[in-house]
Design a protein around this nucleic acid. Structure first.
Length: 153
DNA sequence: GCCAACGTTGGC
DNA sequence: GCCAACGTTGGC
């Protein structure tokens, strides 16, 4: 089993929204590196940190898990969607997504500056300046560190 | 294939 | 809301 982190703006879709819906197709990712992680490497049961970006505070809000592996992101074909991609073809979809399922919400958001203070986490794209990757792998050590911090706070 | 222009992300 | 940093687009 592997570990991941996904970003979402809570104004758009928060951990509470996921808790309410239980499951959500992770649609709207329009970055090739992030897509490739979802398409090729995210497997059923993998655990996922749910990160709130552009938030007050920005940080990790809870945990989800992969509940369905790679399948085409329907929003790329929806003409009125913000994620519509006119170049993508139905028989050869450009954008793939996974579905995630709510696992738990942390008692409080584990803020970004707390993560930045951890030596163990210094190689995460999340804390590196100028990295905008919205789906990223998390190592076992990083996962353990983050979960411990979350339970402690 | 280069690279300037443009659009987006996301911390602050 | 600003804007730095980045990825993508498209002219050449």
């Amino acid at each position: 089993m592997k570990y991941w982190l996904v970003k979402s703006e809570p104004d758009e879709f928060s951990i509470d929204d996921l808790a309410k819906k239980k499951r959500a197709g992770w649609e709207g990712v329009r970055n090739y590196q992030a897509r490739n992680f979802m398409r090729d490497l995210m497997k059923l049961g993998d655990l996922v940190l749910f990160y709130h970006s552009n938030a007050e505070p920005s940080g990790i809000a809870g945990i989800a898990k992969v509940s369905k592996e790679s399948h085409p992101d329907p929003s790329q074909f929806e003409r009125h969607s913000a994620y519509y991609d006119p170049k993508s073809k139905k028989d050869e979809p450009t954008w793939m997504m996974v579905e995630i399922e709510f696992v738990e919400k942390f008692n409080r958001v584990l803020p970004l500056d707390r993560l930045k203070a951890e030596k163990t986490l210094e190689n995460m794209p999340l804390v590196k300046k100028g990295t905008r990757l919205s789906v990223m792998p998390v190592s076992e050590k990083e996962w353990a560190c983050i979960v411990a911090l979350a339970k402690k706070s």
